[in-house]
Amino acid sequence: MRTRLPVIICGVFGVFMAAQYFITAEPVTAMYRAVLDWMQIIFVCALLVGILNVILRQLKSAARPGPDRVYAGIALFGIALMVVLGFGWGIGRGSAFLWVFNNVQAPMQTTVFSLLAFYVASAAYRGFRARHFESALLIAAALIILLGRVPIGEMISSHVPAVVSWVLNVPAVAAKRAILIGIGLGMTATAIKVIAGLERAYLGSRTR
């Protein structure tokens, strides 16, 4: 029962959701919309499991003596601040919740991403050595894109923007399309295996 029932449920929902694409009858479409709503609610509940897990871990860290205690306290303060502001005073335009998001959270996220500029530069310095023809192609494509998207590219030659446009629209798109086709084939095969009950990794390692 522990394995068979979830596999049967998975198969039934999989077959229904695949078949509804070809059936336009109203009851089927209504059921399809209802299942999408259920999925959304289950997704949010799964997110809540993760959030509650983070809170429990931080509470445990805060209770243990040691240097991590202060950091766990800061994390719990952040969670409590957003929860109190969001549920207490709303999340609409002009709310304190949105103010904290715009003035603290969003700039901090942007700063963390901008940190990567330094590491990308250092990785490029160490990794970009044209040892093979393939790595030379990679460097050339990266440099052409970088040059073509800044004013200095057009100052070097008026052809640079056209070359950039060609690289992006022809060879890069060809490789991207092939990768998308590969992803599509792989996902379709995996979906069929999941619906048929051959792929059960989502149930946990003990069921394999």
Partner: peptide
Amino acid sequence: YLLIGLTVGYSLVISVKTV
């Protein structure tokens, strides 16, 4: 840690209030 806390709190509020 502050960023982690704010992000977790934000996700909690938004998911409950909007879904």
